[in-house]
Simulated scan of single mutants.
Amino acid sequence: MSLPRIMVAPNGARKTRADHPALPVTLDQITDTALACHAAGAGALHLHLRDDAGGHLLDSVAYREALAHLRPRLGDMAIQITTEAAGLYLPGHQRYVALNSGADMVSVSTREMLRDDAALATRFYTQADAQGIAVQHILYSREDGEALAQVLPARLLHSPDLQLIFVLGRYVEGQVSTPDMLTPFLDWMAQIKIAPDWALCAFGQGETVCLEAALRAGGKARVGFENSVHMADGSTAPDNAARVAQIAALEIGTASSSDRHA
């Protein structure tokens, strides 16, 4: 199972409708947003759930119910669930949710998984693979990649099915992202000789130029209000679909450029 060229992350764990009135919080809002983003060019939904108070929710039963609701409505749009802790959940709970939610695509932070015994992380990655769950490993730095390489079985690390996502700007003051922040990740992949299925997301107003750099480097894009509510010109996007459409337009340009150089 490969990543789509564009995945949308429409809400995240922390933003609310006070941050943007079009940010989806309820399952019906998420459904409508996902459909609009699919029409705009997104091939997958990165799914965060909220509790009744609007807070971040990581619950296997809630995920099963959400997937049962979404799958018949979204058709061929893939769904990836998050295991983000958001300061609320421990690695054991995150692993349980990943393995018991009925999802076949899961994003997992290497940094969060390694908060406890590294052997437990290795066991989790092996079990997820055995269950046919595609884990996309979240890396905030080259050091996260190096840590992942220490605990991920070699056959998974060097598999072309390995899924990674590089996150730019999350822990930078002001959450500023620039394309040069991608370079350490590219150098790391070249150094250890892996060719994974990788994507990038970027926080702040630099989201568009960073995603364009990723597409031109052979990667994929995750875009949406989880990371930024800004259009390329710095204006506030009307909704997630507008962000997807702008990146989809970049994708067309990138594909044409690649074709010219083939």
Rank of each mutant, 00 (worst) to 15 (best):
M7Q: 14
M7S: 15
A9W: 01
N11C: 13
K15E: 00
A18K: 08
Q29F: 09
D32I: 04
A39D: 15
G41I: 08
G41V: 09
A42C: 02
A44C: 11
H46W: 09
L47V: 10
L47D: 00
L58D: 06
S60M: 02
Y63P: 00
E65M: 11
H69P: 00
L70N: 05
D76I: 02
A78C: 06
G87E: 05
P91E: 13
H93Y: 08
H93V: 11
N100W: 11
G102I: 14
V108L: 11
M113I: 04
D116H: 12
A121N: 13
F124V: 07
A128N: 08
A134R: 13
Y140P: 04
S141W: 08
E146Y: 05
P153T: 02
R155K: 05
H158R: 09
P160S: 11
T183W: 10
D187V: 15
W188G: 01
I192C: 13
P196Q: 05
D197F: 04
F203C: 07
T208Y: 15
V209P: 12
E212N: 12
A213Q: 13
G218S: 12
G219F: 08
F225L: 15
N227D: 10
A241L: 14
I247W: 10
I252V: 13
A255L: 13
S258N: 13
D259T: 12
